[in-house]
Design a protein around this nucleic acid. Structure first.
Length: 983
RNA sequence: GCCGGGAUGGCGGAAUUGGUAGACGCACGGGACUCAAAAUCCCGCGGUGGCAACACCAUGAGAGUUCGAUUCUCUCUCCCGGCACCA
């Protein structure tokens, strides 16, 4: 046995052993309980970063632990290989994205291998392989047939830097999620996936995911954004006649009851009659373009690309945001596509949505978004209003600070009729009303909505109180100052005619019923979630399998022609989509009529790729079907591990995609990930200087020396020139901030085991980790000690292994060895408990404690030492230690397990469980408190009853001193723990 | 503003259902070994007072429940994440 711990040598040997024996090859074993552990696959950006190392170590620890616990484990790995960085790199280096991507994959794979992860590489896949993305295309076509994919022109988020369309979810604070550039609006035809059809199910099923962190479920629920309220309308007549009466016929519900359809009855929690639901596709097919949105189950051979103009019936309501296709608009703006579709007419209904129908009697105005058709109508002969509207539109494009801007508005001169009182209500345009949410118009109730209140104060609109607080401390209503209770749902109606005295719920019910009776509104559910626009005007992605034919329109590529293969030799130059410049790609014949046609050059959002890769891992070699029966064995994923930054996008799309595949009969499960562990982000200090031209220059923390200044502020200087740099706080490791730490340096220097151990030991997996390598030496020291201890005991342990029956352990042994053995088992018990909590840092601690106690026994065995007992405890303890460590530090465990003759392969060893008998003591120590303060401890027999314990404790001198003659009121005895004397 | 999570030594963090606060490690101080250094090993290490035994204080702040609170309840402060003129 090597005298010195040489990680690089033993790690290479262990990895060769695993490779040669196919140790991590997963096989379906019906009847054996499986454990599918998956870490989010990486984008092949070039090399692993610290977050990857953390992520994959967590996954590997869980995989190896459950394997030793007897589960049939699967841990696959793949590559999220399509995406923009490959194109950017291609532009910078004139290398085709494919070449760049495959080279990165090769290098990162070697890095993952050097870390010793128990990955089944036979299942490796990359999403840029035709064998993978052909199924993106295939499912796309199935969804098209089902009406779950549709094409629509709309306003999109346009990233001017990447020159691509972004999904709503990819817009953060009005900026592109990758580039940070301000997003602009553009009208563009694109394909959508109807995730809103599953909104109800995606929301309801969150309750059935006990293995998910609450914060992720909350974020998804907020994102889906269900709100209950009432949708109603104000009739108007601009023709110069009287305002329309209240007996106008209500347009048929199909044009406005735009609830996303839930899934089948079993998933629905409300028990609402399915027949009463009006689905999105039914709606869209009547409104926007019936050829475009075939009913589910139909199989159109063509699709038309442009919506037909809607009929503008006199009493049609404005389009609701569903049909306006708010999904493609950026939040806080959008809807321009809608205004072209809808002309405000002389007579009509102004629709609004409210969650506070109980305040409807307090309406004193209505406010329109700048993009609202009625606003455009009013501006027709009002230049000042037109100018104001233009200003609002411009402002709303460019705002991250929209939330802080002043509330501004302008009257339209239009008057509408209150649906219940028949009173005239003035209509304003307000810059705080969003076209993309709800109806693009709101009722104004200044007394009971804070925004309306300030708006009314500013423009002198009446404020009419209709709710009174029920609590005495609320204070009187005054129009001088806003008070939070004005918005409370706990009041009762006043000044509201027949509704006086009703509480929130009764009032909403009564008012909704009256509106419905008049045909002017009803209860409605509104969702924040929008459909998922998947078209990208980029090269490096899955080609959308559509052919454009002059005669036949948009024709789906027949299944027999799949995959539509992406040429891999393109080098994008930054101008437009390189695919459009490839005649060999674009030119084709129409599958329907055989005439020359052109291929769609848009590609799919890369979130499509990652929405189902975890299913494909079950059967990556399936060439004839997207998935096969093996998916039923492995799925759902038992444990998914990945960054919290994917809490919404990827995880929500995956849940949607799984349901789509289920509804197409491809799989039978509902939810893809049974348990989710969201690992915290890895952060580091940020240092920079501002150069003369105002540009920021970032310095890697490794180049900076930080010292604590006298005033508590940290002063930092650049090591190279000794001059100060500014501290920019702490942020995620990123290229742009130049604050990354390359894990390869750590691995090269210390080896995989030490890097892995340190990562697990330094903080719990879900916590944010501010990078510091201060503790790495401690991890290295520990593993060196493990090695040295094993080396020292090598001969005697080998001897023991050859003669295992010489001595058996006996309960009641009073040697020091018994104490040590108790500690070993107590720590083992604790560690096993901690595995259930994913608390790997304390598992590492437990391993350290076990080594500490074994070393102590070895150094000072105690006067009555029996050599056989002594060796028994060392042998057993080290066996526990090596197995406990093996998920975290597999290489050293593998090596020592063999060296010390514990067995052939530690992977095959059973997971250690503690021996309850080892924990039993004849005498136990109890903490003694007087009035809750610790005053000492006593040893009592294990089976002493409380009366005996009381006697012993009260006789204790320290207790006597603190009781000091006062009468003892009572004595609390917590068995096995403590005694508290109350005086 | 709303929703979620958090605040414990110089640092990372521990404390399972309310039961010895600070495990384990880092850093630091002292010692052993060494010609010396590295490595290794031993001892110490929340604060205040005290030679000491020991006492008092201490888990962001304040209150409450309890024999006993880092843990439960309420109020507040600050930090992190998410959402947001959402009607």
């Amino acid at each position: 046995m090597q005298q010195k711990y040489n990680p690089h040598v033993i790690e290479r040997e262990a990895q060769q052993y695993w490779d040669a024996s196919g140790a991590f090859r997963a096989r379906e074993a019906p009847g054996k309980r499986k454990y599918y552990c998956l870490s989010m696959f990486p984008y092949p950006s070039g090399k692993l970063h610290m977050g990857h190392v953390r992520n994959y170590t967590i996954g590997d620890v869980l995989t190896r632990y459950h394997r030793m616990k007897g589960r049939n484990v699967l841990q696959p790995m793949g590559w999220d290989a399509f995406g923009l960085p490959a194109e950017n790199a291609a532009m910078a280096n004139s290398v085709p994205p494919a070449k760049w991507t495959y080279e990165n994959i090769a290098y990162m794979k070697s890095q993952l291998k050097s870390l010793g992860f128990a990955i089944d590489w036979s299942r490796e896949l990359a999403t840029c392989q035709p064998g993978y993305y052909r199924w993106n295309q295939w499912l796309f076509l199935r969804m098209l047939e089902k009406g779950l994919v549709y094409k629509k022109t709309g306003v999109v988020n346009w990233d001017p830097v990447d020159r691509t369309v972004l999904a709503n979810e990819q817009v953060i604070d009005g900026r592109g999620w990758r580039t940070g550039a301000m997003v602009q609006k553009r009208a563009i035809p694109m394909y959508y996936m109807a995730i809103t059809r599953y909104a109800e199910a995606l929301l309801a099923a969150l309750d059935k995911l006990p293995g998910w962190p609450d914060r992720v479920k909350t974020m998804q629920a907020n994102w889906i954004g269900k709100s209950h309220g009432v949708r109603f309308c104000f009739p108007y007549d601009l023709s110069g006649g009287k305002a329309a009466g209240t007996n106008l016929p209500l347009p048929q519900p199909s044009s406005h009851a735009l609830l996303p359809k839930g899934e089948g009855a079993p998933e629905r929690g409300t028990g609402a009659p399915v027949s009463g639901d009006v689905t999105v596709e039914a709606h869209v097919s009547t409104r926007a373009n019936s050829a475009l949105h075939p009913a589910p189950g139909s199989h159109p051979s063509t699709i038309r690309s442009e919506p037909a103009p809607p009929s503008a019936g006199a009493l049609e309501p404005p389009l609701s945001f569903w049909e306006r296709g708010g999904g493609e608009g950026s939040r806080g703006a959008g809807g321009e596509g809608g205004s072209s579709e809808t002309q405000a007419t002389e007579k009509g209904l102004l629709w609004v949505f409210t969650t506070r129908a109980d305040t409807i009697m307090g309406v004193t105005f209505a406010a329109l978004a700048a993009e609202h058709p009625l606003a455009a109508r009013a501006a027709r002969d009002n230049p000042k209003l037109a100018a104001f509207i233009e200003e609002c539109k411009r402002g709303s494009v460019m705002e991250a600070d929209l939330a802080t801007i002043e509330k501004r508005g302008m009257p339209t001169g239009i008057s509408i009729t209150h649906p219940l009182t028949g009173q005239p209500v003035p209509v304003w345009v307000g810059n705080y009303v969003l076209m993309a949410y709800g109806e693009g118009a709101v009722m104004g109730v200044p007394a009971h909505d804070e925004r309306d209140f300030h708006f009314a104060k500013q423009y002198g609109l009446p404020i009419r109180q209709v709710i009174n607080a029920q609590t005495a401390d609320a204070g009187a209503f005054t129009t001088d100052q806003w008070q939070p209770w004005y918005e409370s749902k706990n009041g009762v109606c006043i000044n509201s005619g027949k509704y006086n005295g009703l509480g929130y719920h009764e009032a909403v019910e009564a008012i909704a019923a009256d509106l419905k009776a008049k045909g002017l509104g009803e209860k409605q559910v509104l969702w924040r979630l929008r459909d998922w626009g998947i078209s990208r005007q980029r090269y490096w992605g899955t080609p959308i399998p559509i052919i454009h034919c002059q005669g036949c329109g948009d024709v789906p590529v027949p299944d027999r022609d799949l995959p539509v293969v992406l040429p891999e030799d393109c080098v994008p130059d930054g101008t437009g989509n390189p695919l459009a410049k490839r005649p060999d790609f674009v030119n084709c014949t129409c599958p329907k009529c055989g005439k020359p046609a052109s291929r769609e050059t848009d590609t799919m959002d890369t979130f499509v790729d990652s929405s189902w890769y975890y299913i494909r891992f079950a059967c990556p070699d399936s060439t004839r079907t997207m998935v096969d029966g093996r998916a039923e064995y492995w799925l759902p994923v038992d444990q998914y591990v990945g960054g919290i930054e994917h809490a919404i996008l990827h995880l929500l799309y995956s849940r949607f995609w799984t349901r789509v595949m289920r509804d197409l009969g491809l799989i039978t499960f509902d939810e893809p990930f049974a348990n989710l562990l969201t690992q915290g982000m890895v952060l580091n200090e940020i240092y920079f200087r501002r150069s003369d031209n105002g540009r920021m220059v970032y310095y890697n923390p490794a180049e900076v020396e930080a010292k604590a200044g006298e005033d508590g502020n940290r002063d930092a200087i650049l090591k190279a020139d000794g001059q100060p740099v500014e501290a920019g706080g702490i942020g995620t490791m990123s290229k742009s901030k130049n604050n990354g730490v390359d894990p390869q340096e750590l691995i090269d220097r210390y080896g995989a085991d030490i890097a892995r151990f340190f990562m697990m030991f330094t903080s719990p997996p879900e916590d944010t980790l501010v990078w510091s390598d201060a503790g790495v030496e401690g991890a290295a020291r520990f593993l060196r000690r493990v090695w040295a201890f094993a080396e020292r005991k090598n001969e005697v342990l080998k001897w023991w292994s050859a003669n295992p029956t010489l001595v058996r352990w006996e309960v009641g042994n009073t040697e020091k060895a018994a104490t040590v053995r108790r500690e070993v088992h107590a720590n083992l018990k604790q560690a096993n408990y901690d595995f259930g909590k994913f608390q790997f840092n304390t598992i590492a601690s437990a391993a350290m404690k076990i080594l500490n106690t074994l070393e102590d026994l070895d150094r000072s065995p105690g006067p009555e030492a029996n050599v056989n007992v002594h060796v028994f405890v060392l042998h057993e303890g080290l066996g526990v230690l090596l197995r406990l460590l093996s998920p975290i530090t597999p290489h050293i465990s593998h090596c020592l397990w063999r060296e010390l003759r514990y067995g052939e392969d530690v992977l095959a060893a059973p997971w250690p469980e503690h021996d309850p008998a080892a924990l039993i003591e004849d005498e136990i120590e109890l903490v003694v408190q007087v009035n809750g303060k610790k005053r000492g401890d006593v040893r009592v027999p294990r089976d002493a009853d409380s009366r005996a314990i009381e006697r012993i404790v009260l006789a204790d001198p320290a207790v006597q001193r603190h009781v000091n003659g006062q009468p003892v009121k009572k004595v609390v005895v917590v068995p096995g723990r403590l005694v508290n004397v109350v005086v």
